[in-house]
Structure formats: C-alpha cells, structure tokens
Write a protein that binds this DNA or RNA. Structure first.
Lengths: 181, 181
DNA sequence: TCGCCCACCTATCTGTTAGATATTTCTGTC
DNA sequence: GACAGAAATATCTAACAGATAGGTGGGCGA
C-alpha cells in the first residue's frame, strides 16, 4: 500500500501544456507520452475529479454539450513541480517474455525461437515509431523549447529497442546452438 | 479487466523446480527470477490456495508447525505448459524517469542531471548483479540443463543496462549543452 | 432526409497487483 | 531466559488496466 499514485503527475503534466477535456488528456498522454507512459480512463477521470475538488484544477464547460475542460490552477502548477521533484519510485519488473524463456526447457526451443523473433519484430516497430516521432518534431514549430527534453525520452526508447535487437540476435544464435544438441 | 493474472504462471513455474512453502516460493521468485519478475505476498498466498483448491497443487505439512509445502500435480504441470504457450500480454509502460525528463523544462536542467546520474548508478549496479548471477551459475552443478535458458534472461538484462548507460552518457552531454545556453 | 459510423466525451466496473501490516513459531546467540 | 531475526501464513487497502456503457455531434451515403 506504499504505492503512491503516479497518475496525478501524468494528468497535471498533460494539463500543464494546455487546458483539455478528460478525453483530450487521455489522447494527449496516449499520443505524446505513449512511448513511455500509459494511463487508463479508470485513473484519468477519478483523478481529474479529485484534483478539481482539491483546487488544483479549474473546470468549465467545454465546446460540446456535457463536456468539461480542465486547466491548471496556480496551486496545481506548484503541485506538479513538487511531484516532479519527488524521487522516482522503481516499478517492479514483470517481463513475460523472459519468464517464458526462463522455463524454456519446459516450453521447447522452437517456441522460444518464435517468442524471440516476435520480440525482434516489436523492437523494429518501436524504432520506426521513434523515427516518426523525431520526424514530426522536426517539422513542428510549436513547443520548440521543450523538444530537447522530449527527444531524450525518444532516445531512451531507441537505445532500449536497439538493445533488444542485439540481444534477440544473440539469443537466436544461442537457441540454434541448443537445437543442434 | 482484460488483464489476466500472470501470477499463476510465476507460482506454478517456481514450484516446477521443487516443492516449497509459500514463503520459499516468494524467496525463490525474488532471488532467482527477481531481475525480471516480481511477485508480492498479496498474490502468492491467494494463488497458492486457489491452485490447490483447483487440484493443480498438492499440499502437505511442512517442516515447521503451521507451515505447508506445495508441489505440482500432473494437472498443474500441464497447466504451466499451457500458460507458457499463451501469448505474452504487453505490459503498459510507466517510466517515471522519462516522465520527469519530458517535463524537464519545468524541473530544471540540474535536477534532470541528477536523475540521469542516478539512473546510471542503478544501471551499473544491475550489471554487477548480473555478473554475480553468472558467477553463481558457473559454479552450480545443479539444474545445469536449465542454465542456457536462464542465461538468456541475464543477457537481456545486461543489454538493457548497457543501453541505459549509453543513453545516460548521451543525455548528460545533451543536458550540459542545454545548461550552457 | 434518414440512418449509420466515427470521433468526442463522461464515467464506472471488475479483476490484477504491490507492499505494508499483523501474527505466530523457531532458531541462534548472549 | 531473553531477544533478534528468519521462516511462515495471511489479509488489507490503494493503485491500476481496460472493457464497458451511455450520450452527443458531425459527416457521408443511400
């Protein structure tokens, strides 16, 4: 129960860019932060309501009937700053691919090969996605001052994807060796 | 709600190695799988009870009063095999470090530098841990047939840690450049 | 014009999970 | 014998995922 909600930081962060509806917050997180952060509706809406109740967000009618636009209050901006400064809490690992490979003798070499090849395809797709993000950012004039920081997150993903590819190639060689025995 | 429990696979997998108490299952997962999998007591005990009720585990008195040792039944072994063959479900990303760096302009370059340096230290510690795992495995005669598969998981961790180090160095250079502006 | 489809929008529900906490027993050491 | 730490069982509460439900508005095709 020592887990402290991280959703608040993500929601406040998204709204620090511009005022938005709950749906738009979800979309912004999915499209802009999506390569390293996820947030479900199950968290977004209760968080928005709570933060509004606590005075960290202003809420007024949106462009459509029934919609509401939220914006950061001064207190909300201060709260975001505070959250960003808090130590990062490590997230427990749960890597399903590695769990399956660990029990690879049970699973069989052929199935392992398939898993690793799938991981390779996934990593390649991720690299393509990062390239697309870079391309988009190169053409956007908006928020230019943020770009260097945003690109750090893309670079992290790229390094990770390349590591996965290198490991996958090595692993496929190892698995082939095992199959030959 | 489409999330399907992964704890069953971890618990059955651990017990496929040898019969254990609930506490020992937790320790085995923590010490042997811990570099890529985590499982809390909150899951382990209810899962053990459920799997026993379902006939996937046998349970008999342990060495100490009040303790219980669980072992895989034939049905349990078949169930593990089945679970290992199910497609891996991707785990949503939630990288607190990258979220902070994304809002690096808000946070400030100095704070970003500290975060990245901490990430570097962590990656180095992870590398040391992998080396220790390799060393331990080199001396153990037990379970030798499993070692190649287990080493694949260690190698994945090493590749990841090295990628983090490379990214961290690059990022520190970038941040220094930003600070100079 | 009408109906369908899709995007926008709000919100909840249920199952998975983390880790703190509580309690008890056993063992080793002083 | 007392104390500390490990072994052992189990639950509790909060965070979280994603499916689902319902509604509105606009565009497009028959």
């Amino acid at each position: 129960m020592a887990r402290v909600s991280q959703s608040e930081m993500a929601v406040l962060g998204a709204l620090s860019v511009r005022p938005m509806t709950g749906y738009a917050v979800r979309e912004a997180i999915r499209t802009v932060l999506g390569h390293f952060w996820n947030e479900s509706y199950g968290q977004i809406y209760p968080t928005l309501t709570r933060l509004h109740t606590e005075g960290l967000l202003d809420r007024h009618g949106g462009e459509r009937s029934g919609s509401m636009t939220y914006s950061l209050t001064t207190a909300g901006r201060a709260r975001l700053s505070e959250l960003l400064r808090q130590p990062e809490s490590p997230r427990p690992e749960r890597n399903g691919l590695l769990l399956r490979l660990f029990f690879g003798r049970e699973l069989g070499v052929d199935a392992c090969v398939e898993l690793v090849q799938a991981a390779k395809v996934d990593a390649e797709q991720r690299l393509a996605n990062y390239a697309a993000i870079r391309a988009t950012m190169a053409t956007e004039e908006e928020d230019r001052a943020h770009h260097p920081f945003w690109l750090l997150t893309v670079s992290a993903g790229e390094h990770g994807a390349r590591a996965t590819l290198a490991w996958a190639d090595e692993t496929l060689r190892t698995l082939r060796g095992l199959a030959a025995n």
